[in-house]
Each structure stands twice: as structure tokens, then as C-alpha cells.
Write a protein that binds this DNA or RNA. Sequence first.
DNA 1: TTGTAGGCGTTATCAG
DNA 2: CTGATAACGCCTACAA
Lengths: 345, 345
Amino acid sequence: MKEKVTIYDIAKALNITAATVSRALNNNPKISEATKTLVMETAKKMNYEQNRFALALKSGKSHNVGVIVPFINRNFFSSIIRGIEEELYPKGYHVIICQTHEDAKKEEETVQNLLNAQVDGILMSVSKTTQQVRHFKKILKSNTPLVFFDRIKEMDGVSTVTINDFQGGYMATKHLIDVGCTRIAHATVDLALPIYKHRFEGYKQALEDHDIAYNDDYLITTKSDIDAGEKAIKKLLKLKNAPDAIFSASDYAALGAIQQLNVLGIKVPDDFAVVGFSNEPFTQFMELSMSTVDQSPVEMGKTAARVFLEQMKEPNLKIMKKVELSPELIVRKSSSKLTANNKQI
Amino acid sequence: MKEKVTIYDIAKALNITAATVSRALNNNPKISEATKTLVMETAKKMNYEQNRFALALKSGKSHNVGVIVPFINRNFFSSIIRGIEEELYPKGYHVIICQTHEDAKKEEETVQNLLNAQVDGILMSVSKTTQQVRHFKKILKSNTPLVFFDRIKEMDGVSTVTINDFQGGYMATKHLIDVGCTRIAHATVDLALPIYKHRFEGYKQALEDHDIAYNDDYLITTKSDIDAGEKAIKKLLKLKNAPDAIFSASDYAALGAIQQLNVLGIKVPDDFAVVGFSNEPFTQFMELSMSTVDQSPVEMGKTAARVFLEQMKEPNLKIMKKVELSPELIVRKSSSKLTANNKQI
DNA sequence: TTGTAGGCGTTATCAG
DNA sequence: CTGATAACGCCTACAA
């Protein structure tokens, strides 16, 4: 009952040869319809299942793709993975997931590992600590399609899917200006990483476009957690000319900021407006819901998957595609002043 | 540069035979240390990587495990997956993830799919709509270890990892009684599913143990979303003898309940206490943070993975293990009345 | 201690 | 249209 049935078994049953069975199963045009249907039927009858290993050995394709993210249980990443899975499953690919824990070394090791496993492609978001690109080059050298999403590393031959972080930063900042804020601080995480750099640049550009001088004191570098947000507020409020708003590149830091503002008795949004980034689920469930920038992660995952599929279609020519999705500003209570010409969501 | 080097290549380079190379690489005791190290070295030098397909074809083991969940981007599940990955990766297994979207048909198909892919085991949480067990039997018949986590189906030969939902329901309800509530409602999702049934039974038992009569009017079946929670509150408050607390088997419904209570101007927790279930991340970030029951999902994933590994160690004997983790009551503001003898977290 | 040969399940090439 | 055969890369009796 449990022994696998092979094409030989069904060949024997029909008094033909395995090659014919194989061809029939693969819809080879030079097989008579008669035997084709005959083979198909008995195959079904005998519960035949193609052995993927044999196929993989022969073809060199595993029909698996590797996905590497820092942590799986971060909503942003798990949503991307969801998108990838939904796009790739119908095409017969399985998704192998690995996490780096933001550790460059683990990332290198994982890449090597997936390469050994002969995945047909690697889709990944680069760890924060990654400096080297050696392991990425190895992927390319092995002729395996590589797609970066969100956290990218500029490299020749690698496709990327990102959102327009500049635009996101711009929108968030412009919104704060629109609701009447004039001293807008920015909390970033690490300006060495493109995503944060672009958000910062968008912030700066929005200020400039509205004749607000950029103030270095208002730029604060924090970790992406609640604690960091609290500290940031403490520090900012000590300034002579304290800000009246903050655009945080991290929802978590923004949350910490709001909590600290509450502690200090400063009214959000009236006395201090806050906008985060990422649209983490909790932002909409907070009593004082948080304005933020949505990155449509599921869509991002689907897009990354589609880029990979395109690449698979043209195995001989190197495609390098850069897709940029548009962020969406979501205005909620934390920045909804009555003076504003904005619509509440 | 990109052609794979095989054991034949390294055999040729050393003027020995591939078999010897294979043995050396596998640390076969009947190979001289001299050739062993020699082989090892040149293998490294030539960047030899074992072809996993060939190995898989020969051994029948893929070193992949399949994980099936309803949705990947639900914190509970992604945390479980995180635990599984962290436990299995060091042992050389890769984790393939698939989602059912709570669709029984998709679940069957996915199982079949993973079986074809010859995964070495399947770890899964059963879809809400699943009635049949045909596909599970197929897994067992193929001699593939099967581990259910959280959402299980009682079946012979299947290991399970769950939390003690009865205890969770009991703790939550007892806590509400402790803070002085006497008319405690319960929102469930589907009593046909073991997890919800057990939570309900815990609820009932706690009432009984404290001499509170169970009231059928207080049992309300909702979906697991915000909307459902709002409706539930509306319905409950129409009762002649309206409840003064609710234990919801879903954090989302609990959230909806709190929101609706706010709309109606009913003070939480003083006039109406709320406890949810699952400890979704948003529950602690709400302005009025929500009491809930934590299920330690990462630990659950790790445990499921360990159960799988045990099973792999003893391939000949059928192990059937039932692990039950303890839930943890997390008391937050939504149920922290001053009258209570509880500690705030 | 090492070599030889066969097989894991498929597919591709070459005949017929 | 179909059959025979080799090959994908590795492992393992069996022989030497």
C-alpha cells in the first residue's frame, strides 16, 4: 500500500515501455491519443505520483524557492511571505523560509544552505548588519535568480522590489505640515540603510518644498522599538525650540513616542502630532489610532514572486528589474488636527 | 565556474574511484585516514557540494518538512512557524510553508502536494472547515510523521501539541470572578472545534466552582473579528439581566467588544471587564490594554518540531505523543478593577 | 583498504 | 508512434 508506484510499474501493467509511459504522461505530441489516455487512466488507477527527486536530479530544478527574512513573525515580513506563497503555489513552487535574526553571518550561511538545496530562486530582504556581498555574488554565479525585496543591496544583476520610501517620507512630512505643524522632528533607524535614507530624504525634501528649514537637532537616530521612541521624545522635548510633531520611520518608535507624550501630559495630536511608518496592525487598534505609511506587504510579496517567475521564463537572458510600489499615507487620529485640510480614515 | 563538481571530478583529480570519495566524505570507518583527509581537502578546494537530489533519490528523504497553517501572516501562526524553523534549521531541515485560507479543499490538495514533494514530515494546524480525515490517513499511510499543533483532529497515530485550552478558559473566567464580576458572558467561535470547546468548558467549570449558575443567554457565538465583537456586545446588553464582563475566545472579538463599549459610554473595566484569548500583539499596545491568555506560540512551534524529530529518530516504531503546554493569564487594564486581588502586569 | 557494478525514477537521444 | 539505452549524482553490496 505504501510502496511508490513508478512508471515501470505502469509500463509493465500495460506491456509497453517506461519511456512511452513517460512521454504519455508528459503529453508528448508523438504519442497516439489511444495510448495516452490509456496510460493516463491506469496511472490514476494505480495512484501513480511522479517522483520529484528523480525529476530534480535529471533537470536540476527543485521547484522550491528560498525566502530569507530577518524574522518570520514580524507582520511586515509574514505578510510578504503570504504574498509570495499565494503567487508561487499555483505555479507549482514550494516556499522554503529561513530567518537571519538580523545576523549577517547567519545570512551567509543560510544562502549557502539554500544553494546546496538547489532552490530555483532566492527572494530575500537583507539583514541590517550585512556588509559583504560575497554570498550574493555566489548566488548569481550559480545562475540562481535573486530578488531583493524592501531591504535591498544595490548590485548588478539583482532584481529588486521596494516601495518608494522617499515618497513615503515626503507624504508623511507634507501631511504634518498640512495640519499646521512647523517644527517636525524625524526619528530614523539607520541612515546607512537605503530604506531609512530615502525616508529621511523625503522628509527633508518636503520641508524644503514648504520653506521650512531643516534642523539637525530634530533628526534623531533610534532603534526600532518602543523604548527608543520614549527616549527620543524625552530628548527632543529638552530642546530650546522643541518640535511639535514627529515623523518616525518606525511604527514601534512612534508608539513609544505617543506613550511618552501621554505620560508627560502632552496632547496628541493637538499639541504634538505623530506619524509612523509600516502600518503595523497595532497602529489601527490603538485607542488613539496612529497615522502611518502603508507598504502593502502582501502586494510586495506577490510582486517579488512575479519578478522571479519572469526570470524563470527567460533562463538564458539576465533580466534585472526594479519595481517600485507606491506607499499610501493612512491618516488616523494621531495627526488629525481640526485645522487640517485632510480626510480622516 | 558554475558547473557543479561531483564526486567523480574529485575522484579523477586524485586518481581514485568515486566510491572511495563517497566513503571518505561520509567518514566511512574502513577508509584510511590518509585518503580521508586528502579527499576532504581537495573536496573543499574544488568547492564540492553534495547534490541533495541524488541523495534524496537514493534515500527517499528530502530533509524538508511541510508546515500547513490557515494564514501565514497571523501572529499566532507566524510565531509558531518561527519556533519550528529555529528548531529544525540547525538539524539540517528546511521548512516549506503552505496556507489553506481555512479551506478544507485547499488543505487536502496541499497535503497531497507536500506528499508528492516527499517531505519528511508534516506539521500542521487544521483548517476550521475541515471535516474529512481522508488526507490525514494518506499521510500516515505514506509513513510520514504527522504532528498537529493547536488545531487538532483526534486521530490514531498522530502526535499533537496544544495548549491546555480548558485551563486557559478557566483562568480567564476565574480572574473575572476574582475581580468581582458575577454575570460573565462568553464569546466563542465554533464549539465544534476542540480549542473553542475546551475554552468554553473551562469557562463553565470556573463558574460552577464559584457557585455561579451558567446562563445560556450569556453564550454567544461569533466570528473571530472586530465586527463580531461589536455585535456581540450590542446583543448582550439588550438582555434583561445584562452581563458585567465577557471572556472572549478571540482577541479580535474582544477588541470589537471594547470598542463598542466605548461607543456606548460603558466604562471598561469598571462597569464591564473584558478578557481575550491569544495575546495578539495589539492587545498590549491598546491605550486600554487588554487582558488575555498567552499561548506561547514560539514555544509551541519548537515543541512540535521536537516531537517531529523524535519521531524521525525511531522510524520503525510508531510514536504518538500528546504534549500540552500551559497557557498564561496576562492581566492588563481591561479587567483590572481596584477591588481585585490580582497583580497588574 | 579500495574498486566494480547496479540501482534510485525520470527523461532525452537515437533507432526502428 | 514506440522501444532500448544512457545519464543525472550518489550510495552500497560484493569482490578483490
